[in-house]
């Protein structure tokens, strides 16, 4: 019961994604607590980019992340496992073909 009361006062949790330089994807950096999105971005600046690690920050409230279940991994990724012909190394080319 006491736990519930304290958790109610806790600022929501946010996931932080950072683009380290223009041209690269945003990458998950970690998480933090903040009362709203604006504060989450400012806190992310202080917590995750003190050494110029980023040029752009995304924040997403953690409760909005939907994740696959690792227990389903074998069935979820099964369709890809037997299709090695999707990789270029599946094909044998004669030595004469230099660039392909």
């Amino acid at each position: 019961m006491e736990k519930e009361i304290t958790n109610k006062n806790e600022w929501p949790l946010w996931e932080v994604f950072i683009r380290s330089k223009a041209g690269l994807d945003h990458k998950h950096a970690g998480s933090l607590h903040a009362s709203d999105a604006e504060m989450a971005i400012e806190n992310a600046r202080d917590v995750y980019t003190r050494r110029m690690e980023g040029v752009s920050i995304w924040v997403v409230e953690s409760k909005n992340i939907h994740a696959s279940d690792p227990g389903d991994a074998s069935s979820l990724y099964e369709p890809a496992t037997d299709k090695i012909y999707r990789h270029p190394t599946f094909y044998n080319l004669p030595d004469e073909v230099k660039y392909m």
Partner: peptide, 19 residues
Amino acid sequence: GHGLYLYSAAETLGVSRDE
């Protein structure tokens, strides 16, 4: 900052920051 990285790593195990 290091304290904050570590608290959020601990939170992924199901314990809350307030706890």
